[in-house]
Design a protein around this nucleic acid. Structure first.
Length: 542
RNA sequence: GCCCCCAUCGUCUAGUGGCAUAGGACGCCGGGUUCUCAACCCGGUAACAGGGGUUCGAGUCCCCUUGGGGGUACCA
Protein backbone atom coordinates (compact mmCIF):
# COMPACT_ATOMS: atom_id res chain seq x y z
CA UNK A 1 0.00 0.00 0.00
CA UNK A 2 1.30 3.40 -0.88
CA UNK A 3 1.28 6.16 1.65
CA UNK A 4 -1.42 8.74 1.58
CA UNK A 5 -0.64 11.76 -0.53
CA UNK A 6 -0.34 15.04 1.36
CA UNK A 7 -0.24 18.33 -0.51
CA UNK A 8 -0.38 21.91 0.60
CA UNK A 9 -1.04 25.41 -0.59
CA UNK A 10 1.24 27.88 1.14
CA UNK A 11 0.41 31.46 0.24
CA UNK A 12 2.00 34.48 1.80
CA UNK A 13 -0.74 36.81 2.94
CA UNK A 14 -0.03 39.89 0.89
CA UNK A 15 -3.46 40.52 -0.59
CA UNK A 16 -6.21 38.91 -2.55
CA UNK A 17 -5.66 35.53 -4.11
CA UNK A 18 -4.62 35.96 -7.70
CA UNK A 19 -5.08 33.61 -10.61
CA UNK A 20 -1.61 32.13 -10.32
CA UNK A 21 -2.13 31.33 -6.65
CA UNK A 22 -5.55 29.90 -7.35
CA UNK A 23 -4.06 27.59 -9.94
CA UNK A 24 -1.34 26.38 -7.58
CA UNK A 25 -3.93 25.76 -4.89
CA UNK A 26 -6.19 24.00 -7.36
CA UNK A 27 -3.64 21.49 -8.62
CA UNK A 28 -2.53 20.62 -5.11
CA UNK A 29 -6.14 20.25 -4.08
CA UNK A 30 -7.06 18.17 -7.12
CA UNK A 31 -4.20 15.75 -6.48
CA UNK A 32 -5.24 15.31 -2.86
CA UNK A 33 -8.90 14.87 -3.71
CA UNK A 34 -8.22 12.52 -6.58
CA UNK A 35 -6.14 10.22 -4.39
CA UNK A 36 -8.10 10.52 -1.18
CA UNK A 37 -5.17 12.36 0.37
CA UNK A 38 -4.86 15.39 2.60
CA UNK A 39 -4.74 19.02 1.51
CA UNK A 40 -3.21 21.52 3.92
CA UNK A 41 -3.46 25.30 3.92
CA UNK A 42 -0.41 26.91 5.48
CA UNK A 43 0.06 30.64 5.78
CA UNK A 44 3.61 31.77 5.11
CA UNK A 45 3.64 35.03 6.99
CA UNK A 46 7.33 35.36 7.68
CA UNK A 47 7.76 38.71 6.02
CA UNK A 48 6.58 41.32 8.47
CA UNK A 49 6.94 44.12 5.96
CA UNK A 50 4.72 42.63 3.30
CA UNK A 51 1.94 41.00 5.24
CA UNK A 52 -1.32 42.85 5.59
CA UNK A 53 -3.68 42.04 8.43
CA UNK A 54 -6.67 41.35 6.20
CA UNK A 55 -4.89 39.35 3.55
CA UNK A 56 -5.22 35.95 5.20
CA UNK A 57 -8.95 36.39 5.39
CA UNK A 58 -9.08 37.50 1.77
CA UNK A 59 -7.21 34.42 0.63
CA UNK A 60 -9.43 32.20 2.73
CA UNK A 61 -12.58 33.79 1.33
CA UNK A 62 -11.35 33.44 -2.23
CA UNK A 63 -10.45 29.77 -1.79
CA UNK A 64 -13.84 29.08 -0.28
CA UNK A 65 -15.57 30.87 -3.13
CA UNK A 66 -13.71 28.68 -5.59
CA UNK A 67 -14.81 25.62 -3.65
CA UNK A 68 -11.30 24.65 -2.60
CA UNK A 69 -11.52 23.33 0.95
CA UNK A 70 -8.67 22.20 3.18
CA UNK A 71 -8.32 19.36 5.64
CA UNK A 72 -5.88 21.15 7.89
CA UNK A 73 -5.16 24.81 8.29
CA UNK A 74 -6.52 28.13 9.51
CA UNK A 75 -10.06 28.14 10.94
CA UNK A 76 -10.16 24.37 11.28
CA UNK A 77 -6.80 23.47 12.84
CA UNK A 78 -5.34 20.00 12.59
CA UNK A 79 -2.67 17.74 14.05
CA UNK A 80 0.26 19.60 12.51
CA UNK A 81 -0.48 23.15 13.63
CA UNK A 82 0.00 25.96 14.06
CA UNK A 83 -0.59 26.69 10.41
CA UNK A 84 0.81 30.19 10.51
CA UNK A 85 4.56 30.25 10.16
CA UNK A 86 4.82 33.29 12.38
CA UNK A 87 3.60 31.06 15.21
CA UNK A 88 6.23 28.39 14.61
CA UNK A 89 9.37 30.34 15.40
CA UNK A 90 10.50 28.08 18.24
CA UNK A 91 10.22 25.09 15.93
CA UNK A 92 12.49 26.68 13.36
CA UNK A 93 14.95 27.75 16.02
CA UNK A 94 15.37 24.19 17.20
CA UNK A 95 16.53 23.12 13.75
CA UNK A 96 18.70 26.18 13.31
CA UNK A 97 20.56 25.35 16.51
CA UNK A 98 21.13 21.84 15.31
CA UNK A 99 22.63 23.08 12.04
CA UNK A 100 24.73 25.66 13.84
CA UNK A 101 26.15 23.08 16.23
CA UNK A 102 27.07 20.82 13.36
CA UNK A 103 28.75 23.66 11.49
CA UNK A 104 26.19 23.29 8.69
CA UNK A 105 24.93 26.79 9.20
CA UNK A 106 26.80 29.87 10.26
CA UNK A 107 26.41 33.50 11.27
CA UNK A 108 27.00 36.43 8.95
CA UNK A 109 27.21 40.12 9.69
CA UNK A 110 27.04 41.91 6.36
CA UNK A 111 24.43 44.58 5.94
CA UNK A 112 22.08 44.51 2.95
CA UNK A 113 24.01 47.48 1.55
CA UNK A 114 27.31 45.65 1.75
CA UNK A 115 25.86 42.63 0.03
CA UNK A 116 24.38 44.84 -2.66
CA UNK A 117 27.81 46.26 -3.35
CA UNK A 118 29.39 42.83 -3.67
CA UNK A 119 26.64 41.81 -6.04
CA UNK A 120 27.24 44.86 -8.21
CA UNK A 121 30.93 44.08 -8.40
CA UNK A 122 30.25 40.52 -9.50
CA UNK A 123 27.83 41.82 -12.11
CA UNK A 124 30.45 44.20 -13.44
CA UNK A 125 32.73 41.23 -13.98
CA UNK A 126 29.88 39.40 -15.76
CA UNK A 127 29.76 36.77 -13.09
CA UNK A 128 26.92 35.48 -11.00
CA UNK A 129 27.25 36.52 -7.38
CA UNK A 130 27.73 33.88 -4.69
CA UNK A 131 28.33 34.56 -1.04
CA UNK A 132 31.88 33.64 0.00
CA UNK A 133 31.84 31.38 3.01
CA UNK A 134 34.59 32.43 5.48
CA UNK A 135 37.40 29.92 6.02
CA UNK A 136 36.80 30.11 9.75
CA UNK A 137 33.15 30.24 10.78
CA UNK A 138 32.15 33.01 13.23
CA UNK A 139 31.69 31.99 16.85
CA UNK A 140 29.02 32.94 19.39
CA UNK A 141 31.53 35.44 20.75
CA UNK A 142 31.69 37.08 17.33
CA UNK A 143 27.93 37.33 17.37
CA UNK A 144 27.98 39.12 20.69
CA UNK A 145 30.59 41.48 19.40
CA UNK A 146 28.65 42.20 16.21
CA UNK A 147 25.47 42.77 18.14
CA UNK A 148 27.27 45.17 20.46
CA UNK A 149 28.36 47.11 17.38
CA UNK A 150 24.80 47.20 16.19
CA UNK A 151 25.45 45.03 13.17
CA UNK A 152 22.83 42.82 11.54
CA UNK A 153 23.15 39.14 12.32
CA UNK A 154 21.82 36.57 9.87
CA UNK A 155 22.34 32.84 9.57
CA UNK A 156 23.25 31.07 6.37
CA UNK A 157 23.02 27.46 5.34
CA UNK A 158 26.39 25.96 4.36
CA UNK A 159 25.50 24.44 1.03
CA UNK A 160 27.23 21.10 0.48
CA UNK A 161 29.49 20.77 -2.57
CA UNK A 162 28.56 18.96 -5.73
CA UNK A 163 25.74 18.63 -8.20
CA UNK A 164 22.19 18.67 -6.96
CA UNK A 165 19.68 16.77 -9.02
CA UNK A 166 16.02 17.33 -8.48
CA UNK A 167 13.50 15.00 -9.95
CA UNK A 168 10.48 16.84 -11.20
CA UNK A 169 7.43 14.71 -11.90
CA UNK A 170 6.74 16.44 -15.18
CA UNK A 171 10.09 17.92 -16.15
CA UNK A 172 12.30 15.00 -15.27
CA UNK A 173 15.77 15.49 -13.84
CA UNK A 174 17.11 19.01 -13.51
CA UNK A 175 20.71 19.54 -12.45
CA UNK A 176 22.26 22.38 -10.51
CA UNK A 177 25.78 23.14 -9.47
CA UNK A 178 25.64 23.92 -5.76
CA UNK A 179 28.67 26.21 -6.05
CA UNK A 180 26.56 28.51 -8.22
CA UNK A 181 23.69 28.43 -5.78
CA UNK A 182 25.73 29.58 -2.81
CA UNK A 183 24.97 29.69 0.89
CA UNK A 184 21.54 31.23 1.32
CA UNK A 185 20.16 32.98 4.35
CA UNK A 186 17.89 30.86 6.51
CA UNK A 187 17.35 33.27 9.41
CA UNK A 188 16.89 36.97 8.80
CA UNK A 189 18.23 39.64 11.10
CA UNK A 190 14.77 40.06 12.63
CA UNK A 191 14.96 36.45 13.80
CA UNK A 192 12.34 35.23 11.32
CA UNK A 193 13.15 32.35 8.99
CA UNK A 194 13.31 32.87 5.27
CA UNK A 195 10.93 31.11 2.95
CA UNK A 196 13.54 28.60 1.84
CA UNK A 197 14.08 27.46 5.41
CA UNK A 198 10.62 27.52 6.96
CA UNK A 199 9.22 25.78 3.95
CA UNK A 200 11.55 22.80 4.33
CA UNK A 201 10.93 22.41 8.04
CA UNK A 202 7.17 22.64 7.63
CA UNK A 203 6.97 20.37 4.62
CA UNK A 204 8.87 17.81 6.65
CA UNK A 205 6.84 18.17 9.84
CA UNK A 206 3.55 18.25 7.96
CA UNK A 207 4.63 15.14 6.03
CA UNK A 208 4.05 16.74 2.67
CA UNK A 209 4.52 14.15 -0.07
CA UNK A 210 4.02 16.32 -3.16
CA UNK A 211 5.05 19.91 -3.64
CA UNK A 212 3.29 21.48 -6.61
CA UNK A 213 4.27 25.07 -7.19
CA UNK A 214 5.07 27.53 -9.94
CA UNK A 215 8.12 27.47 -12.12
CA UNK A 216 9.29 30.58 -10.30
CA UNK A 217 10.31 28.23 -7.50
CA UNK A 218 12.43 25.94 -9.62
CA UNK A 219 15.63 27.67 -8.52
CA UNK A 220 14.64 27.36 -4.86
CA UNK A 221 14.21 23.64 -4.99
CA UNK A 222 17.86 22.49 -5.09
CA UNK A 223 18.66 24.55 -2.01
CA UNK A 224 15.61 23.26 -0.20
CA UNK A 225 16.41 19.71 -1.15
CA UNK A 226 20.01 20.09 0.06
CA UNK A 227 18.71 21.46 3.34
CA UNK A 228 16.28 18.56 3.60
CA UNK A 229 19.06 16.06 3.20
CA UNK A 230 21.47 17.85 5.52
CA UNK A 231 18.80 17.83 8.23
CA UNK A 232 18.47 14.10 7.77
CA UNK A 233 14.81 14.30 6.81
CA UNK A 234 15.05 11.27 4.52
CA UNK A 235 13.32 11.06 1.18
CA UNK A 236 12.37 14.56 -0.05
CA UNK A 237 8.88 15.22 -1.38
CA UNK A 238 8.04 14.79 -5.04
CA UNK A 239 8.23 18.07 -6.86
CA UNK A 240 6.23 19.51 -9.72
CA UNK A 241 7.03 22.91 -11.11
CA UNK A 242 4.07 24.16 -13.04
CA UNK A 243 4.23 26.32 -16.10
CA UNK A 244 3.55 29.98 -15.57
CA UNK A 245 0.37 31.75 -16.64
CA UNK A 246 1.18 34.56 -19.00
CA UNK A 247 -0.92 37.63 -19.40
CA UNK A 248 -2.25 38.78 -22.75
CA UNK A 249 0.09 41.72 -22.49
CA UNK A 250 3.08 39.39 -22.17
CA UNK A 251 4.95 38.45 -19.01
CA UNK A 252 3.63 36.87 -15.85
CA UNK A 253 0.00 37.61 -15.09
CA UNK A 254 0.45 40.09 -12.31
CA UNK A 255 -1.48 42.52 -10.23
CA UNK A 256 0.55 45.37 -11.64
CA UNK A 257 -1.56 45.14 -14.77
CA UNK A 258 -4.51 46.90 -13.22
CA UNK A 259 -2.68 50.13 -12.36
CA UNK A 260 -0.84 49.89 -15.66
CA UNK A 261 -4.09 49.77 -17.60
CA UNK A 262 -5.48 52.74 -15.72
CA UNK A 263 -2.33 54.79 -16.23
CA UNK A 264 -2.46 54.19 -19.95
CA UNK A 265 -6.14 55.07 -20.10
CA UNK A 266 -5.71 58.34 -18.22
CA UNK A 267 -2.81 59.37 -20.39
CA UNK A 268 -4.89 58.65 -23.49
CA UNK A 269 -7.55 61.11 -22.38
CA UNK A 270 -6.35 64.57 -23.26
CA UNK A 271 -8.59 66.84 -21.23
CA UNK A 272 -8.99 65.31 -17.85
CA UNK A 273 -9.25 66.98 -14.49
CA UNK A 274 -6.41 65.55 -12.45
CA UNK A 275 -7.55 67.22 -9.28
CA UNK A 276 -10.90 65.58 -9.62
CA UNK A 277 -9.25 62.20 -10.15
CA UNK A 278 -7.14 62.60 -7.04
CA UNK A 279 -10.29 63.50 -5.15
CA UNK A 280 -12.17 60.48 -6.44
CA UNK A 281 -9.33 58.18 -5.48
CA UNK A 282 -8.89 59.96 -2.15
CA UNK A 283 -5.21 60.51 -2.78
CA UNK A 284 -3.17 63.68 -3.05
CA UNK A 285 -2.43 65.30 -6.38
CA UNK A 286 1.24 64.56 -5.75
CA UNK A 287 0.50 60.87 -5.36
CA UNK A 288 -1.53 60.93 -8.53
CA UNK A 289 1.24 62.59 -10.49
CA UNK A 290 3.79 60.14 -9.16
CA UNK A 291 1.49 57.35 -10.28
CA UNK A 292 1.08 58.82 -13.76
CA UNK A 293 4.84 59.24 -14.02
CA UNK A 294 5.20 55.57 -13.17
CA UNK A 295 7.09 56.28 -9.96
CA UNK A 296 4.63 54.79 -7.52
CA UNK A 297 1.34 53.00 -7.28
CA UNK A 298 -1.55 53.92 -5.00
CA UNK A 299 -3.56 51.25 -3.21
CA UNK A 300 -6.11 49.17 -5.08
CA UNK A 301 -9.22 50.94 -3.77
CA UNK A 302 -7.87 54.22 -5.15
CA UNK A 303 -7.08 52.62 -8.50
CA UNK A 304 -10.51 51.08 -8.69
CA UNK A 305 -12.34 54.25 -7.72
CA UNK A 306 -10.51 56.30 -10.32
CA UNK A 307 -11.04 53.64 -12.97
CA UNK A 308 -14.74 53.57 -12.27
CA UNK A 309 -14.93 57.34 -12.47
CA UNK A 310 -13.14 57.32 -15.82
CA UNK A 311 -15.20 54.44 -17.11
CA UNK A 312 -12.12 52.30 -17.60
CA UNK A 313 -12.47 48.56 -17.29
CA UNK A 314 -9.53 47.05 -15.46
CA UNK A 315 -8.33 43.57 -16.41
CA UNK A 316 -9.29 40.96 -13.83
CA UNK A 317 -6.28 39.51 -12.04
CA UNK A 318 -7.45 38.47 -8.62
CA UNK A 319 -10.08 35.87 -7.99
CA UNK A 320 -12.39 38.53 -6.54
CA UNK A 321 -12.12 40.57 -9.72
CA UNK A 322 -13.58 37.71 -11.69
CA UNK A 323 -16.23 37.19 -9.07
CA UNK A 324 -17.25 40.82 -9.40
CA UNK A 325 -17.28 40.56 -13.17
CA UNK A 326 -19.95 37.90 -12.91
CA UNK A 327 -17.95 34.75 -13.43
CA UNK A 328 -19.06 31.65 -11.65
CA UNK A 329 -16.57 29.62 -9.56
CA UNK A 330 -17.26 26.40 -11.44
CA UNK A 331 -16.15 28.06 -14.66
CA UNK A 332 -13.10 29.64 -13.07
CA UNK A 333 -11.91 26.35 -11.64
CA UNK A 334 -12.55 24.50 -14.87
CA UNK A 335 -10.79 27.10 -16.94
CA UNK A 336 -7.81 27.44 -14.63
CA UNK A 337 -7.41 23.69 -14.50
CA UNK A 338 -7.16 23.59 -18.27
CA UNK A 339 -4.40 26.16 -18.24
CA UNK A 340 -1.35 23.96 -18.42
CA UNK A 341 -3.16 20.69 -18.03
CA UNK A 342 -5.49 18.58 -20.06
CA UNK A 343 -7.27 15.31 -19.40
CA UNK A 344 -6.09 13.97 -22.74
CA UNK A 345 -9.49 13.34 -24.25
CA UNK A 346 -11.68 15.89 -25.94
CA UNK A 347 -13.58 16.86 -22.82
CA UNK A 348 -13.19 20.47 -21.80
CA UNK A 349 -16.21 21.79 -19.97
CA UNK A 350 -16.58 19.75 -16.81
CA UNK A 351 -18.11 20.08 -13.37
CA UNK A 352 -15.81 19.80 -10.37
CA UNK A 353 -16.34 16.15 -9.55
CA UNK A 354 -15.53 15.15 -13.08
CA UNK A 355 -12.42 17.29 -12.97
CA UNK A 356 -11.26 15.45 -9.87
CA UNK A 357 -12.04 12.13 -11.45
CA UNK A 358 -9.88 12.58 -14.50
CA UNK A 359 -7.08 14.56 -12.85
CA UNK A 360 -3.59 13.25 -13.44
CA UNK A 361 -0.67 15.30 -12.19
CA UNK A 362 1.74 13.91 -14.76
CA UNK A 363 -0.32 15.40 -17.55
CA UNK A 364 0.70 18.94 -16.69
CA UNK A 365 2.09 20.89 -19.63
CA UNK A 366 5.68 22.04 -19.54
CA UNK A 367 5.23 25.21 -21.51
CA UNK A 368 3.71 28.44 -20.27
CA UNK A 369 0.19 29.32 -21.21
CA UNK A 370 -1.53 32.55 -21.96
CA UNK A 371 -4.61 33.55 -20.04
CA UNK A 372 -7.27 33.91 -22.71
CA UNK A 373 -10.25 35.82 -21.40
CA UNK A 374 -12.48 35.11 -24.35
CA UNK A 375 -12.22 31.40 -23.76
CA UNK A 376 -12.96 31.92 -20.10
CA UNK A 377 -16.07 33.83 -21.11
CA UNK A 378 -17.21 30.94 -23.22
CA UNK A 379 -16.56 28.51 -20.37
CA UNK A 380 -18.58 30.72 -18.07
CA UNK A 381 -21.54 30.60 -20.40
CA UNK A 382 -21.34 26.84 -20.65
CA UNK A 383 -21.29 26.53 -16.89
CA UNK A 384 -24.20 28.92 -16.52
CA UNK A 385 -26.11 26.45 -18.66
CA UNK A 386 -24.80 23.44 -16.76
CA UNK A 387 -25.55 24.67 -13.25
CA UNK A 388 -28.77 23.69 -11.53
CA UNK A 389 -31.30 26.52 -11.29
CA UNK A 390 -30.95 26.66 -7.53
CA UNK A 391 -27.17 26.75 -7.59
CA UNK A 392 -27.22 29.43 -10.24
CA UNK A 393 -29.64 31.46 -8.20
CA UNK A 394 -27.35 31.28 -5.20
CA UNK A 395 -24.45 32.47 -7.30
CA UNK A 396 -26.54 35.28 -8.74
CA UNK A 397 -27.69 36.30 -5.29
CA UNK A 398 -24.13 36.45 -3.99
CA UNK A 399 -23.07 38.36 -7.07
CA UNK A 400 -25.83 40.96 -6.78
CA UNK A 401 -24.87 41.52 -3.19
CA UNK A 402 -21.17 41.78 -4.03
CA UNK A 403 -21.74 44.45 -6.66
CA UNK A 404 -24.43 46.18 -4.64
CA UNK A 405 -27.06 45.91 -7.34
CA UNK A 406 -30.66 47.07 -7.00
CA UNK A 407 -31.64 43.72 -8.49
CA UNK A 408 -30.74 42.25 -5.10
CA UNK A 409 -34.22 43.29 -3.96
CA UNK A 410 -35.72 40.44 -5.95
CA UNK A 411 -36.91 37.43 -3.98
CA UNK A 412 -35.88 33.87 -4.77
CA UNK A 413 -38.75 33.19 -7.10
CA UNK A 414 -38.28 36.40 -9.04
CA UNK A 415 -34.58 35.62 -9.35
CA UNK A 416 -35.36 32.25 -10.87
CA UNK A 417 -37.68 33.96 -13.34
CA UNK A 418 -35.01 36.49 -14.29
CA UNK A 419 -32.51 33.71 -14.87
CA UNK A 420 -34.97 31.96 -17.12
CA UNK A 421 -35.64 34.95 -19.34
CA UNK A 422 -31.93 35.70 -19.59
CA UNK A 423 -31.06 32.34 -21.04
CA UNK A 424 -27.90 32.55 -23.10
CA UNK A 425 -26.22 35.05 -20.78
CA UNK A 426 -22.48 34.74 -20.60
CA UNK A 427 -21.98 36.16 -17.13
CA UNK A 428 -24.03 37.02 -14.09
CA UNK A 429 -23.28 40.62 -14.99
CA UNK A 430 -25.20 40.13 -18.23
CA UNK A 431 -28.25 39.11 -16.26
CA UNK A 432 -27.86 42.04 -13.90
CA UNK A 433 -27.47 44.50 -16.75
CA UNK A 434 -30.51 43.25 -18.57
CA UNK A 435 -32.78 43.19 -15.57
CA UNK A 436 -31.72 46.27 -13.66
CA UNK A 437 -34.35 48.42 -15.36
CA UNK A 438 -37.03 46.54 -13.42
CA UNK A 439 -35.61 47.73 -10.14
CA UNK A 440 -35.03 51.41 -10.74
CA UNK A 441 -37.58 54.17 -10.30
CA UNK A 442 -39.71 55.00 -13.32
CA UNK A 443 -38.34 58.49 -13.65
CA UNK A 444 -34.76 57.51 -13.11
CA UNK A 445 -34.32 55.73 -16.41
CA UNK A 446 -31.10 56.75 -18.12
CA UNK A 447 -31.59 56.98 -21.84
CA UNK A 448 -28.88 55.85 -24.19
CA UNK A 449 -28.60 58.71 -26.66
CA UNK A 450 -27.77 56.52 -29.62
CA UNK A 451 -30.76 54.33 -28.92
CA UNK A 452 -33.04 57.33 -28.65
CA UNK A 453 -31.82 58.77 -31.93
CA UNK A 454 -32.04 55.58 -33.87
CA UNK A 455 -35.15 53.97 -32.48
CA UNK A 456 -37.34 56.78 -31.25
CA UNK A 457 -36.57 59.82 -33.33
CA UNK A 458 -35.49 58.54 -36.73
CA UNK A 459 -38.14 55.97 -37.47
CA UNK A 460 -41.19 57.59 -36.02
CA UNK A 461 -40.74 55.41 -32.99
CA UNK A 462 -42.56 57.89 -30.80
CA UNK A 463 -45.70 57.61 -32.90
CA UNK A 464 -45.53 53.85 -32.65
CA UNK A 465 -45.15 54.17 -28.90
CA UNK A 466 -48.36 56.12 -28.64
CA UNK A 467 -50.23 53.45 -30.56
CA UNK A 468 -48.73 50.73 -28.40
CA UNK A 469 -49.88 52.54 -25.32
CA UNK A 470 -53.45 52.57 -26.54
CA UNK A 471 -53.46 48.92 -27.51
CA UNK A 472 -51.90 47.96 -24.23
CA UNK A 473 -54.71 49.79 -22.48
CA UNK A 474 -57.21 47.54 -24.15
CA UNK A 475 -55.84 44.12 -23.36
CA UNK A 476 -56.73 44.01 -19.70
CA UNK A 477 -54.71 41.66 -17.51
CA UNK A 478 -51.15 41.38 -18.86
CA UNK A 479 -49.70 38.09 -19.92
CA UNK A 480 -46.73 37.36 -22.14
CA UNK A 481 -49.05 35.75 -24.64
CA UNK A 482 -51.44 38.66 -24.86
CA UNK A 483 -48.60 41.12 -25.17
CA UNK A 484 -47.00 39.05 -27.88
CA UNK A 485 -50.23 38.78 -29.84
CA UNK A 486 -50.86 42.48 -29.56
CA UNK A 487 -47.35 43.48 -30.66
CA UNK A 488 -47.20 40.97 -33.49
CA UNK A 489 -50.65 42.00 -34.65
CA UNK A 490 -49.63 45.61 -34.65
CA UNK A 491 -46.50 44.87 -36.65
CA UNK A 492 -48.48 42.96 -39.21
CA UNK A 493 -51.11 45.63 -39.44
CA UNK A 494 -48.48 48.28 -40.06
CA UNK A 495 -46.60 46.05 -42.48
CA UNK A 496 -43.37 46.27 -40.56
CA UNK A 497 -41.04 43.85 -38.77
CA UNK A 498 -41.59 43.18 -35.12
CA UNK A 499 -38.43 45.13 -34.40
CA UNK A 500 -40.06 48.38 -35.44
CA UNK A 501 -42.62 47.84 -32.72
CA UNK A 502 -40.55 46.20 -30.03
CA UNK A 503 -37.53 48.48 -30.13
CA UNK A 504 -39.28 51.78 -29.35
CA UNK A 505 -41.09 50.08 -26.52
CA UNK A 506 -37.85 48.61 -25.25
CA UNK A 507 -36.07 51.95 -25.24
CA UNK A 508 -39.04 53.53 -23.48
CA UNK A 509 -39.04 51.07 -20.62
CA UNK A 510 -35.34 50.53 -20.08
CA UNK A 511 -33.54 53.34 -21.87
CA UNK A 512 -31.43 51.02 -23.99
CA UNK A 513 -31.87 48.59 -26.83
CA UNK A 514 -30.89 45.68 -24.63
CA UNK A 515 -33.32 43.85 -22.41
CA UNK A 516 -34.81 40.41 -21.91
CA UNK A 517 -37.49 39.42 -24.49
CA UNK A 518 -39.88 42.33 -24.74
CA UNK A 519 -42.99 40.37 -23.80
CA UNK A 520 -41.45 39.15 -20.57
CA UNK A 521 -40.06 42.57 -19.86
CA UNK A 522 -43.44 44.28 -20.12
CA UNK A 523 -45.18 41.59 -18.16
CA UNK A 524 -42.65 41.89 -15.36
CA UNK A 525 -42.76 45.66 -15.30
CA UNK A 526 -46.54 45.71 -15.13
CA UNK A 527 -49.07 47.94 -16.81
CA UNK A 528 -48.84 50.99 -14.61
CA UNK A 529 -45.08 51.28 -14.71
CA UNK A 530 -45.00 50.61 -18.44
CA UNK A 531 -47.48 53.44 -19.05
CA UNK A 532 -45.55 55.74 -16.81
CA UNK A 533 -42.34 55.06 -18.70
CA UNK A 534 -43.99 55.41 -22.09
CA UNK A 535 -45.49 58.73 -21.02
CA UNK A 536 -42.18 59.94 -19.64
CA UNK A 537 -40.44 58.99 -22.85
CA UNK A 538 -43.01 60.56 -25.16
CA UNK A 539 -42.96 63.71 -23.10
CA UNK A 540 -39.20 63.94 -22.97
CA UNK A 541 -38.45 63.39 -26.64
CA UNK A 542 -41.44 65.01 -28.38
C1' G B 1 25.73 39.28 -17.32
C1' C B 2 24.99 34.41 -14.92
C1' C B 3 21.71 30.05 -13.85
C1' C B 4 17.34 27.31 -15.19
C1' C B 5 12.85 25.97 -17.94
C1' C B 6 10.09 25.83 -22.44
C1' A B 7 8.76 25.72 -28.05
C1' U B 8 2.17 22.12 -32.56
C1' C B 9 -3.33 26.76 -35.61
C1' G B 10 -4.13 33.90 -33.19
C1' U B 11 -5.07 31.29 -28.07
C1' C B 12 -5.66 26.68 -24.80
C1' U B 13 -4.30 21.99 -26.23
C1' A B 14 -4.31 16.30 -28.37
C1' G B 15 -0.09 13.96 -30.19
C1' U B 16 5.25 9.58 -26.30
C1' G B 17 8.96 7.00 -34.19
C1' G B 18 4.72 4.53 -38.76
C1' C B 19 -3.02 4.98 -36.58
C1' A B 20 -1.69 11.88 -39.56
C1' U B 21 -3.97 14.62 -46.14
C1' A B 22 -1.72 16.73 -37.66
C1' G B 23 -7.44 16.05 -34.01
C1' G B 24 -10.56 19.13 -30.52
C1' A B 25 -12.00 23.76 -28.08
C1' C B 26 -12.05 29.23 -27.92
C1' G B 27 -11.47 33.23 -31.26
C1' C B 28 -11.94 34.94 -36.16
C1' C B 29 -14.46 34.95 -41.16
C1' G B 30 -18.92 33.58 -44.15
C1' G B 31 -24.07 31.92 -44.08
C1' G B 32 -28.79 30.74 -41.44
C1' U B 33 -32.31 31.82 -37.31
C1' U B 34 -34.11 36.09 -34.48
C1' C B 35 -38.12 41.72 -31.15
C1' U B 36 -32.57 43.83 -28.86
C1' C B 37 -28.15 41.70 -26.67
C1' A B 38 -26.73 37.05 -26.09
C1' A B 39 -27.70 32.21 -27.36
C1' C B 40 -28.51 28.64 -31.25
C1' C B 41 -27.52 25.95 -36.25
C1' C B 42 -24.32 25.21 -40.73
C1' G B 43 -19.74 26.06 -43.21
C1' G B 44 -14.71 27.95 -43.48
C1' U B 45 -9.71 29.90 -42.15
C1' A B 46 -5.36 28.47 -39.54
C1' A B 47 0.08 25.27 -36.69
C1' C B 48 4.62 21.25 -36.04
C1' A B 49 10.12 28.33 -35.09
C1' G B 50 14.80 27.60 -38.30
C1' G B 51 19.05 24.52 -39.42
C1' G B 52 21.70 20.12 -38.89
C1' G B 53 21.83 14.97 -37.51
C1' U B 54 19.87 9.59 -35.93
C1' U B 55 16.39 6.25 -38.58
C1' C B 56 13.67 2.42 -43.83
C1' G B 57 10.59 6.28 -41.58
C1' A B 58 10.50 12.23 -37.19
C1' G B 59 5.63 16.85 -34.76
C1' U B 60 7.53 12.79 -31.79
C1' C B 61 14.89 11.15 -30.36
C1' C B 62 19.93 14.17 -30.30
C1' C B 63 22.72 18.86 -31.29
C1' C B 64 22.98 24.03 -32.63
C1' U B 65 20.52 28.70 -33.63
C1' U B 66 16.47 31.73 -32.72
C1' G B 67 12.40 33.02 -29.84
C1' G B 68 9.52 33.09 -25.20
C1' G B 69 9.47 32.56 -19.88
C1' G B 70 11.41 32.12 -14.89
C1' G B 71 15.23 33.05 -11.26
C1' U B 72 19.33 35.91 -9.83
C1' A B 73 16.72 39.43 -2.12
C1' C B 74 17.64 39.54 5.19
C1' C B 75 10.07 38.49 -0.84
C1' A B 76 7.47 34.27 -0.98
Amino acid sequence: MTDKIVTRFAPSPTGYLHIGGARTALFNWLLARKTGGTFILRIEDTDLKRNTPTATQQVIDDLRWLGINWDEGPEIGGPNGPYFQSQRLDIYNKYVRRLLEQGKAYYCFESPQELEKLRKEAEAQKKGYVYQRPAVLPTEADVEKAKAQGRDVTIRFAMPDGTITINDLVRGEVNFNSAELGDFIIIKSDGFPTYNFACVIDDYLMKITHVIRGQEHLMNTPGQQALWQTLGFGEPPKYVHMSVTISEGGGKLSKRERPKTLRKAIKAQADIDLNKLAQVGQISIEELNAFLAGDSTPDMPAIEAIAEYCGVTLPEINVVDFCKSGYVPEAMVNFIALLGWSPGDKKEVMPLDELIQCFDITRLTKSNSLFDRSKLLSFNMEHLKLLSKEKLREHLKAYLKAVNSPVAQADDQKLLHLIKICEGARTLADIENKCRFLFVEDDEIEYDQKAVQKVLLKDNGLEMLKIIRERLQDIGELSEEKIENMLRGLAEEKQVGLGKVAQPLRVAICGTTISPPIFDSIQLLGKERTFKRIDNTVHKFS
